[in-house]
């Protein structure tokens, strides 16, 4: 840490800015978890694993076809959508409404399969992408922002916006929200709840897949990242409010910043202390999330 207080403040501001940018991608990842929980009341314990699958798909597109993750992103998201849709229809659907420990065990099995499939196919080594703008940066006042983080954050924001449009403007999106609010009611008015659930899981998976593609710009991928991302997604949605979309985004920003700031103030190995501390506080004092209204 610098002795010069001005320099220190700048370092801190720099960390906050970076944290916000990374936090946007975190937010998109957590959004997927939140959408799935909000609609189906299923906690996706395989969320980080799906994230890692997204990262590997983006890496594959880069490695084989030379595609920038920002370019392959729609395809990665689409692939995850199909995966999520099929998974919900075949495996998860019978477990909706069952006790949490059963859902937990089911998704744990899915998680084990996904992470080890990645391990078997790609091996335990790390893989990253080298894009042209890797070392570019933008100067905003005294701050220096990595181009990759800026692009990743902007695209994450764009996708969150598209998602918002989907849920507020399209027939399917509105139907999903209706089903989330009132399962029986949705059945009564003749909505195909099974299809909507599969659609929701697909959308949630697409979110996390897209987040994976973006994250590959920032970090290198290896299979064992998965459990950390699952945990991270949980922390974010709890802090923001489980089931709330805006909460997931805000929670992502908050956790992104807290990690970055902790990285400056403490040793890097202590960076998640803030996040877990925050999680414990929120669980005890405001379990509905920092942003959600008290129900």
């Amino acid at each position: 840490m610098s002795a010069d207080p001005g320099q220190f403040v700048l370092t801190l501001l720099q960390a906050v800015a970076m944290g916000l940018l990374t936090g946007m991608v975190y937010g998109l990842m957590a959004l997927g978890l939140s959408v799935i929980f909000g609609v189906m009341r299923v906690v996706n314990f395989a969320h980080g694993e799906m994230m890692v699958v997204g990262m590997y798909l983006a890496w594959l597109a880069f490695d084989r076809l030379g595609l920038d993750p920002l370019v392959s992103l729609p395809a990665v998201a689409a692939a995850l959508f199909v995966f999520g849709y099929v998974l919900q229809r075949t495996v998860i659907n019978p477990f909706i409404g069952l006790p949490e420990h059963m859902q937990f065990m089911l998704l744990l099995a899915v998680a084990i399969l996904l992470v080890n499939a990645c391990l078997a196919i790609f091996g335990p080594d790390t893989h990253g992408v080298q894009v042209d703008y890797m070392f570019d940066s933008f100067n905003v006042g005294p701050l220096v922002l990595d181009a990759v983080r800026v692009y990743a954050a902007l695209v994450a924001l764009l996708i969150a916006g598209l998602l918002w449009l989907f849920f507020t403007r399209t027939r399917s999106g509105k139907a999903i929200r209706a089903a989330a609010d009132n399962h029986v009611g949705a059945l009564v008015v003749g909505l195909d709840v099974k299809r909507l659930y599969a659609l929701t899981f697909g959308v949630g998976a697409a979110c996390v897949g897209a987040a994976g593609a973006l994250m590959l710009l920032i970090v290198q991928v290896h299979p064992f990242l998965a459990i950390d991302y699952t945990l991270l997604a949980f922390v974010i949605v709890i802090v923001g409010g489980l089931g709330s979309m805006s909460g997931a985004l805000a929670g992502g920003l908050l956790i992104g910043v807290s990690e970055a700031v902790a990285g400056v103030l403490l040793q890097p190995s202590l960076k998640s202390v803030f996040s877990f501390g925050l999680l414990i506080l929120v669980l005890l004092l405001r379990p509905q999330g920092l942003l959600a209204r008290r129900s």
Partner: peptide, 13 residues
Amino acid sequence: AGLKQIGYGIALL
């Protein structure tokens, strides 16, 4: 790597 755990995961599932 991971083949063993894939079998295990399938059995668990």
